[in-house]
Write a protein that binds this DNA or RNA. Structure first.
Lengths: 305, 305
DNA sequence: GAAAACATGTAAGCTGTTACATGATTCG
DNA sequence: CGAATCATGTAACAGCTTACATGTTTTC
C-alpha cells in the first residue's frame, strides 16, 4: 500500500489538483501520509506516465494556473485491482514506548514529565474533530466507512490515555527516585492515614509541602493505603506552596489529578495572598480539590461523595 | 525516533549480537521494525563509528564467530539524551481503510471477503501471546512498561474487531449488490418474520438457499426486522447446501456468525450424507447454530436463551 | 542427510521527509 | 501592505525493505 493507491482513490471520486490532494491528506490522520507535496507531485507524474490519470490545465482568469487530474479507464481498472488485494495488516508506531522502556536512567520525575507531555498531546488530538476532512461529495458507503474509522481512531487515542494511566499506576512507582542531596537534610514531610466512618484518607502530620517530590510522596502514600483522598492541614501548606509564582501548588495538584486523587485543604485565610484566593475560588469549581476554613468542613467534604 | 534509539536501549540492558537484536525486533510487534538484518548491521556499524557501542568478538569452539556489542559510556549518555526528548506522537497505518474506502466498485460480497480475511488475521494476532518477546533479564520497571504496552496493543486489535463489526453493520449494507444475471431468473428465496412468545425470528417461506447471496439476504432480513434469530426449515436446505464439497453451508453459516445471528435448522435425516451429519454434530457444540429433527424443537431452542 | 536455525554481511531500490525555489491571490 | 493561503515544482537525503550471498550448527 503506497500513496499511489490512495491518490487513485481520491481522483476516482472527483478530479483534483495536486494541492487538493495534499490538503486532504494533511487534514486527517486517517491518511497516514504527512501531506507532503513533494511526494504527491512525484506520484502524480508517475500516474500520468502510466496512463492512470489524465491532467487538464485550468487557466482561471484571476487565479493561478492549476492542473486538475482525473482517473482514466486504465486507472479505474488499476484501482479496482488494488481494491481486491489481500488486506494488509495495520501497523502502530509508538516512539514513546521505546523512550520509556529504555529510559531506565531517568528519574521518576523526568518520566512523569514525559508522560504528562504525551497525555497533553493525545488529549489535543482527541479534541480536534476531523469533521469533513474528507471529500465532501463522497458516496454514503465511503462516508460510513470514514465515520467508523474516525471513531476507531478516537478509541485508539482513548486507549493511549488508558495506557498512560496504567504506566502511571503500575510502572512509575518502580522508577528511580531522584538523588537525595544528603547535605540538605531537609525536614521531610510525614504522612499518616486516618480511618473515619469506614473510610480512609491520608493526611500530613509533620513537615510541609516544599517540593514536587512531596506531591509524589502523597500519591505514594495513597496508593500504599488504597485510598484516593487526601486532607492537607493548614500547617503543611508552606509559604512556598502558597506563593503562586513558584507554581508548586499547580504542580502538586496536577499530580493528584493525574492519579485521580481528591484533596481537601484547610486554609489560614490571613496567610494567603489575594491571587491564591482567586486561584482557590477557581479550583473550588472542580470536584478534585477544595479549600475549607476548618478541618471539620474539609473532612466532611472529603468523606462525602 | 529511529532504530538506533531502540538498539542503544537493548544494548544498554545487556550485550547482544546483531542477530540477537534482529530476533528481538522480529518477535514483537511493539518494535515496529520488521526485524531486518540489513538495517541492523548497518546501524550497528554506525553506532560503532560514533563510539556508542564497542564490539567484542566471541570465538566459541563449536559455534560460529559472533560479534557481541555493548554500550559504552558515551553510548549511555546518548541514550539518556534521547530518553529525555519531547515524546513523539503515535502513528497508525491502516491500509485496509484506503482499500475499502476507495473500493466503491467492489460488490458487497467482495468487500465481505476482504473483511473476513482481515478479521482472521487480526484474530490470529490476538491469539499469539508475545510472552517473553523481550529481553529476559529486563528490570521490573521495563517489564511493567512492556506489560502495559502489550495489553494496549491487544486493546488496539480488539478495537479493530469492533471496527470490522461496525463496518459490517453500518457500511456494507450500502455497498453495491452484485450484478444479477437477468437470464438466470433463478427462483429467489423468500423470507418472512414470525412473532412467537413476544420474540421475533426470520424464516424461509419459499425457495431454497442456493448461493452465498441467499446467506446475505438472510442477514439483511434479520437486520431489517431487528432480530438475530433464523429458522431454516427442511425445505429450504437445497441438495447443493447439504453437499459439503460445495462449502456453501460453511460460507452461509460464517456469514451468520459474523453478524452474530443464531440459526436453527430442521433436517430431513434421510436426505443428509454421513459427512454432513458429522459436520452438524460438530456444529451442535457451538451455540450459534443447531440442527433439529422437527420444527417445534428448532423453534423452542431458538426462542430460549 | 536434509531442513531449520544461527550468524554476518552487501547492493539496490522503494517510500517518504526536509528544505529549497517561485509566484499568484486573498484577507485582515 | 504584510501575512497567510493557494499552487506547482526540484534536489537531496533519511529510513526501511527486498533480495542476494555465504558459511556454520543444531535438530529432526
Amino acid at each position: 500500500m503506497n500513496i499511489h493507491h490512495a491518490m487513485l482513490g481520491l481522483l476516482g471520486m472527483e478530479p483534483l489538483t495536486g494541492y487538493d490532494i495534499k490538503k486532504i491528506m494533511q487534514n486527517s490522520p486517517l491518511f497516514h501520509w504527512s501531506g507532503n507535496n513533494s511526494q504527491i507531485y512525484r506520484a502524480l507524474s508517475d500516474l500520468l506516465l502510466k496512463g492512470y490519470v489524465a491532467g487538464e490545465v485550468v487557466r482561471g482568469d484571476a487565479s493561478p494556473t492549476k492542473k486538475r487530474y482525473a482517473l482514466t479507464e486504465t486507472g479505474r481498472q488499476a484501482l479496482e485491482d488494488l481494491s481486491k488485494a489481500f488486506p494488509e495488516l495495520p501497523e502502530i508506531k509508538k516512539p514513546i514506548l521505546t523512550q520509556l522502556l529504555f529510559g531506565q536512567d531517568l528519574s521518576r520525575q523526568e518520566m512523569e514529565t514525559i508522560l504528562d507531555q504525551y497525555e497533553r498531546e493525545i488529549r489535543g488530538l482527541l479534541l480536534l474533530k476531523d469533521e469533513n476532512g474528507f471529500i465532501k461529495s463522497a458516496p454514503p458507503l465511503a462516508m460510513a466507512i470514514w465515520e467508523a474509522s474516525a471513531q476507531s481512531l478516537r478509541a485508539f487515542y482513548e486507549g493511549e490515555l488508558a495506557w498512560i494511566e496504567r504506566i502511571r499506576q503500575k510502572a512509575l512507582p518502580l522508577a528511580k527516585s531522584p538523588v537525595i542531596h544528603p547535605e540538605s537534610e531537609r525536614k521531610s514531610m510525614h504522612c499518616a492515614t486516618i480511618h473515619q466512618k469506614g473510610q480512609t484518607y491520608v493526611t500530613v502530620t509533620d513537615g510541609q509541602i516544599l517540593t514536587e517530590q512531596d506531591g509524589l510522596d502523597l500519591v505514594s502514600a495513597c496508593m500504599e493505603h488504597g485510598t484516593n483522598r487526601v486532607l492537607l492541614p493548614a500547617a503543611c501548606l508552606s509559604d512556598h506552596f502558597l506563593r503562586l509564582s513558584t507554581r508548586l501548588a499547580g504542580l502538586v495538584l496536577q499530580k493528584l489529578v493525574n492519579y485521580n486523587i481528591r484533596a481537601a485543604a484547610v486554609l489560614d485565610t490571613q496567610k494567603t495572598s489575594e491571587r491564591f484566593q482567586e486561584f482557590s475560588l477557581e479550583a473550588n469549581k472542580g470536584h478534585a480539590f477544595r479549600l475549607f476554613a476548618t478541618a471539620a468542613e474539609a473532612e466532611a467534604w472529603l468523606l462525602a461523595e
